[in-house]
């Protein structure tokens, strides 16, 4: 079982995330890390391989610092990593990112499973997995909170608001997992040491045969025209409950015409 896990290096949500002058996400001046939601995909891949056999390759598309995201995945236990890095990729939208990822997956080989998280924590669009499935011509088994792979078939449960759907597809398939699926492991000391010796390949767009004119800010099919910081909320009245906190809350609701 060969599994490719697509991961993303994102600005830390705990930090002050902001934009560059060209309206792209600032990835250089804000501390970054492996997108938390991708850890669930790495964990899911490791569990499958540990229960049988095979290899887990992690791939990312991003600037130099994105190597940190791969490192974390290798420390968790992935076998090898591919870093697609090219100046021309800066400012790519989801469409272009999915193109580069799709070509990288093809070059890695023909995996039985392509795994992703449910969304990045920066762009939060949740669209790259579906785009990858479309581009790779793979069945799309997305947003599942359970995952079972056996006898050339993948099964998972997709929880919606009104219904839970049981999904089934033949391998190879593209699967995205939610944060309900498992509890990602912390890298062990052994894992951290072992990661240092694991292979990391760096590929350019030319290595993938992708024309630089198809990606990047100028080629994006959408354009961020402007950004504005939302003014911080002004703190309102805070009362300490001295036996009448609930009454005061109700008075506030009445004053605001909610009651």
């Amino acid at each position: 079982m060969n599994i490719v896990v697509c991961v993303k290096y994102v600005p830390d949500a705990q930090g002050d995330r902001t934009f560059n002058e060209d309206n792209t996400t600032d990835r250089a001046n804000v501390d970054g890390l492996l997108s938390e939601l991708d850890e669930y995909a790495v964990e899911a891949a490791l569990k499958i391989v540990e229960a049988g056999e095979g290899e887990v390759t992690v791939v990312t598309v991003g600037p130099e610092q994105a190597a940190d995201a791969l490192k974390k995945a290798l420390q968790m236990g992935a076998d090898k990593a591919v870093h697609v890095s090219d100046e021309a990729i800066h400012g790519s939208d989801a469409v272009a990112t999915s193109l580069v990822l799709a070509e990288a997956v093809k070059k890695i080989g023909s995996p039985d499973l392509v795994l992703t998280g449910l969304s990045s924590t920066d762009g939060t669009m949740s669209v790259v997995p579906a785009m990858l499935a479309e581009r790779l011509g793979l069945p799309q088994v997305t947003q599942v909170s359970t995952l079972e792979v056996a006898d050339g078939t993948v099964k998972g449960r997709r929880d919606g608001d009104a219904v839970s759907e049981s999904l089934e597809a033949s391998l190879p398939a593209l699967v995205s997992v939610t944060d309900q699926i498992n509890e990602p492991r912390y890298p062990s000391f052994k894992g951290i040491m072992a990661a240092k010796k694991k292979p990391v390949e760096t590929w350019s767009l030319a290595d993938l045969g992708v024309d630089a004119g198809q990606v990047g800010l100028d080629a994006a099919w959408t354009k961020v025209e402007s950004f504005a910081q939302r003014p911080p909320r002004e703190q309102g009245e805070i009362v300490t409950d001295e036996g009448d906190g609930g009454t005061k809350l109700a008075e506030f609701l009445a004053a605001q015409k909610f009651v």
């Binding site: 703190q235 309102g236 805070i238 009362v239 906190g245 609930g246 809350l249 109700a250 506030f252 009445a254």
Partner: peptide, 28 residues
């Protein structure tokens, strides 16, 4: 969470919410 609020109560939700519930019902 208090940094964001228009109105906040520092207290135990198990006493504050039932009292607020009762006060809202009474007002209605």
């Amino acid at each position: 969470i208090f940094e964001l609020v228009d109105f906040g109560v520092v207290g135990d939700l198990f006493t504050v919410l039932p009292q607020a519930t009762e006060a809202v019902q009474k007002a209605r």
